[in-house]
Amino acid sequence: MAKKITAATSDVYTAILALASLTVLSTAVYVALKCWMYYGTLFSIAQASR
């Protein structure tokens, strides 16, 4: 069987995916910082301090 060579026909789509990934990453970092600063936890429900 002949090996099919894949080549990027255009870098536009790659840039779009990179931009989307960067946006999602930035958003996740932002939300994590906010949760940590406000409640002191990332994945559990905040508890009332004694």
Partner: peptide, 12 residues
């Protein structure tokens, strides 16, 4: 790819 990027950016 384009739609996923757009929706990701919008959701973010």
């Amino acid at each position: 790819v384009v739609l996923l990027s757009l929706f990701s950016i919008f959701l973010c």
